[in-house]
Lab assay of single mutants.
Amino acid sequence: MASQGTKRSYEQMETDGERQNATEIRASVGKMIDGIGRFYIQMCTELKLSDYEGRLIQNSLTIERMVLSAFDERRNKYLEEHPSAGKDPKKTGGPIYKRVDRKWMRELVLYDKEEIRRIWRQANNGDDATAGLTHMMIWHSNLNDTTYQRTRALVRTGMDPRMCSLMQGSTLPRRSGAAGAAVKGVGTMVMELIRMIKRGINDRNFWRGENGRKTRSAYERMCNILKGKFQTAAQRAMMDQVRESRNPGNAEIEDLIFLARSALILRGSVAHKSCLPACVYGPAVASGYDFEKEGYSLVGIDPFKLLQNSQVYSLIRPNENPAHKSQLVWMACNSAAFEDLRVLSFIRGTKVSPRGKLSTRGVQIASNENMDAMESSTLELRSRYWAIRTRSGGNTNQQRASAGQISVQPAFSVQRNLPFDKPTIMAAFTGNTEGRTSDMRAEIIRMMEGAKPEEMSFQGRGVFELSDERAANPIVPSFDMSNEGSYFFGDNAEEYDN
């Protein structure tokens, strides 16, 4: 993207840094990872977990959730003011799984939030270390993106479920800051804005008074975040219109849905970061690795190297396929839920299948599930090659597409044709070009129609051997075009429920 120079890199967003050079960025990201790792080690000690239990991804998720809940100030305040039966607002906890007599047992633990905050700050040299908290939120978000298709949420806001490739980060909490905003897809931002506008339509006082002023500035800020994701002048001009509207209503909703559809071809720039579970960072720190000293990046080879040398386990339900569970977590670790499966298959070195073909449910185990038949197995999170994460949407291309997802959002900077089903997408653009945004709409449609099938995206960008740390010898991959490109292809993934 041309304006790259004016933006802070995501590592800076990730670490609240002012302008830093590459070495400083690597050190501050490393410091953040160190903090998460030290916190995780301490929690495993508190909970008396064995090494194996500490490497269980379900335990990692519970521990991450506990610290996120302990620092969720708004919710904590709300819980104190609106006490609900049987919930102690000062405590947080969740299921911890232990191996007892050759069987997995679930144990519900409860801790004072104050105590968890103390352990977290102690692991982070006394700081609140917001960057580390956001990092864990993005890992949870990436896992949700890989596990669930947001059909219901899309339909509720009037969008087409086939636009799911635009929904990265749709389950990120509001408090995820600049680093969170960077990884949100165009569809996620559109959905947040539509929800806001709908509230304004239904509630006369939404934009009024002292609160209304705050609401208005939040609305304009979200519009600017979305505008910054678009790469064409016409899309940005249309966002200006939406932002400046005196009284946002149905016309703005129409414009936003139009823009979301246009992003299936004229893709937005959305950041991709490899955020790993805390149970990967903990053992690495415990083994003596100093992330701050060595430096770390979320968008280069580092996460690949770390996963190459990590042992992570997962509980497996009786009829689940461990290899499929591994694929789910591998995609989440690489922030690749909406990437082209052919690119992923090449990088991973084994075939990556669409969601609907995987015999696996989510990673988390519900409290009512029976533990008797639970097994555990090693997650295979290694890769054959590594590639640089991208934040450009890439230019655009036609490809055989599917009944489910009709476009992709690249996660890796790797040369390819970008699949999208042009006739299906263009069919949504018939007729409606009147109104105050008509010239911009016409211009956007013209650009979409001009998108050429034979153009290559990320020209000359390749993948790298894991021994090639400096990215000196790019390998331009070859793809098996007979395979499906979309992950949520004609899909039956479970729906995400809060």
Rank of each mutant, 00 (worst) to 15 (best):
residue 357 K to D: 08
residue 423 P to M: 06
residue 56 L to D: 13
residue 196 M to H: 09
residue 294 E to S: 00
residue 421 D to S: 01
residue 150 R to Q: 10
residue 337 A to Y: 04
residue 267 R to A: 08
residue 380 E to T: 06
residue 390 T to M: 06
residue 155 V to M: 08
residue 177 G to N: 05
residue 449 E to L: 02
residue 442 A to M: 02
residue 451 A to N: 08
residue 149 Q to K: 12
residue 187 G to H: 04
residue 310 S to W: 02
residue 275 C to R: 13
residue 98 K to F: 07
residue 413 S to W: 10
residue 240 D to E: 07
residue 412 F to T: 12
residue 486 S to G: 10
residue 355 R to I: 10
residue 213 R to W: 05
residue 425 I to K: 14
residue 233 A to T: 15
residue 308 Q to G: 05
residue 276 L to K: 12
residue 37 G to R: 07
residue 291 F to L: 14
residue 33 I to C: 02
residue 371 M to Q: 00
residue 189 M to G: 02
residue 44 C to S: 14
residue 77 K to A: 03
residue 416 R to I: 06
residue 78 Y to S: 08
residue 219 Y to M: 04
residue 491 D to H: 06
residue 177 G to T: 10
residue 304 F to P: 14
residue 422 K to H: 02
residue 494 E to F: 11
residue 172 L to N: 10
residue 130 T to S: 14
residue 269 S to C: 03
residue 233 A to G: 00
residue 51 D to K: 02
residue 498 N to M: 04
residue 76 N to Y: 05
residue 305 K to S: 05
residue 365 I to E: 08
residue 135 H to M: 10
residue 402 S to E: 00
residue 182 A to N: 13
residue 341 L to R: 14
residue 185 G to D: 13
residue 401 A to R: 15
residue 496 Y to F: 08
residue 489 F to C: 05
residue 193 L to H: 06
residue 100 V to I: 12
residue 370 N to Y: 14
residue 99 R to H: 14
residue 238 M to Y: 10
residue 424 T to D: 01
residue 489 F to R: 10
residue 93 G to N: 06
residue 401 A to V: 05
residue 175 R to G: 05
residue 461 R to N: 12
residue 290 D to L: 06
residue 195 R to L: 05
residue 405 Q to C: 10
residue 497 D to P: 05
residue 26 R to N: 09
residue 40 Y to I: 09
residue 466 L to M: 01
residue 494 E to Y: 14
residue 45 T to F: 09
residue 394 G to Q: 02
residue 292 E to A: 00
residue 305 K to N: 05
residue 418 L to K: 06
residue 116 I to Q: 09
residue 8 R to C: 11
residue 349 G to H: 10
residue 401 A to Y: 14
residue 221 R to L: 12
residue 165 S to T: 12
residue 102 R to Y: 14
residue 150 R to T: 04
residue 467 S to M: 14
residue 484 E to R: 04
residue 40 Y to V: 14
residue 337 A to V: 14
residue 492 N to P: 08
residue 460 G to Q: 09
residue 234 A to T: 14
residue 26 R to Y: 09
residue 291 F to E: 08
residue 46 E to S: 01
residue 129 A to T: 02
